[in-house]
């Protein structure tokens, strides 16, 4: 049984075929890196896998379950979590409340209109634990708008991890980070237990290649792979 199986997935926007017949299989516990030039459709592939976009054709299987037609939110309940290349957080809330929202998303409590959210101590404990994993405990109660970019990147990851996903999709988690911050995030990723399958889009080869078990090259196929410069840049060959 594979963790994630994408089969002959295609998506066009108008006349532009962004995702063309992509297939890939990720085994449980694997760390998979997806690379490709700009415009190769990496983020689009993520959006198709998480259900934010509907494919024109092809199928997506999560642990052998066909999720092609499921809406995004259902996939989350089946164990899929993601981060965004462009930070997508809740700027009016504190960090810990951001993570709480991630936890609440999978809890039936989210429909409760009478309980006091701030008194959901178990939820907040779990959120703080998730923040401890990414080293943000000390600023858990700070409003998100008063945190640095690097910290926000880590909040993104904390939110995804807090959901205890089976498959975690990371969209350029190193984008825009300083060298020090990159090191911290790198450690963070290595600390993710092996029962979580990780698929990552990343341009930064030093950290990405070290992390990945296997690499999928996405692009206009033959041409990209045949182009010696691309081979050199991406594969060091």
């Amino acid at each position: 049984m594979s963790a994630l199986k994408v089969d002959a997935l295609s998506k066009s926007f108008g006349g532009l075929r962004v995702t063309a017949d992509v297939s890939l299989t990720v085994e449980p516990g694997e760390r998979r890196l997806i690379i490709g030039p700009n415009g190769a459709g990496k983020t689009t592939l993520f959006n198709l896998i998480t259900g934010e976009l509907a494919p024109d054709s092809g199928s997506i299987l999560l642990f052998d379950r066909d999720i092609t037609q499921l809406p995004s939110r259902r996939r989350a309940h089946f164990g899929m979590a993601r981060t965004y290349q462009i930070i997508t957080l809740f700027p009016r809330d504190t960090i810990v409340r951001n993570v709480c929202l991630a936890l609440l998303g999978l809890s039936p409590l989210r429909w409760n209109p009478v309980a006091a959210f701030d008194r959901q101590h178990r939820l907040f404990e779990r959120a703080r634990a998730a923040l401890a994993r990414v080293g943000l405990s000390h600023i858990a109660d700070r409003p998100l708008s008063q945190t640095s970019y690097g910290e926000q990147r880590r909040v993104e990851i904390a939110m995804a991890l807090a959901q205890n996903p089976k498959v975690l999709l990371l969209d350029e988690p190193f984008a825009g980070l300083s060298i020090d911050e990159r090191r911290e995030v790198n450690q963070l990723l290595f600390a993710i237990p092996r029962d979580v399958t990780v698929v990552m889009i990343e341009h930064n080869m030093d950290v990405a290649l070290e992390f990945a078990d296997r690499i999928t090259l996405l692009g206009t196929r033959a041409e990209v792979v045949a182009d010696p410069r691309t081979r050199e840049v991406y594969l060091g060959a």
């Binding site: 939110r73 809740f90 709480c100 929202l101 609440l104 998303g105 009478v114 006091a116 959210f117």
Partner: peptide, 26 residues
């Protein structure tokens, strides 16, 4: 009561980041 509740927090989440809320399972 409504706005302090988990449901109220969910609603505010859909206001600020509808896309993320969807991905989070809402």
């Amino acid at each position: 009561v409504f706005i302090r509740s988990p449901f109220g927090a969910s609603l505010c989440g859909t206001r600020d980041q509808a896309r993320r809320m969807n991905a989070l399972g809402y």
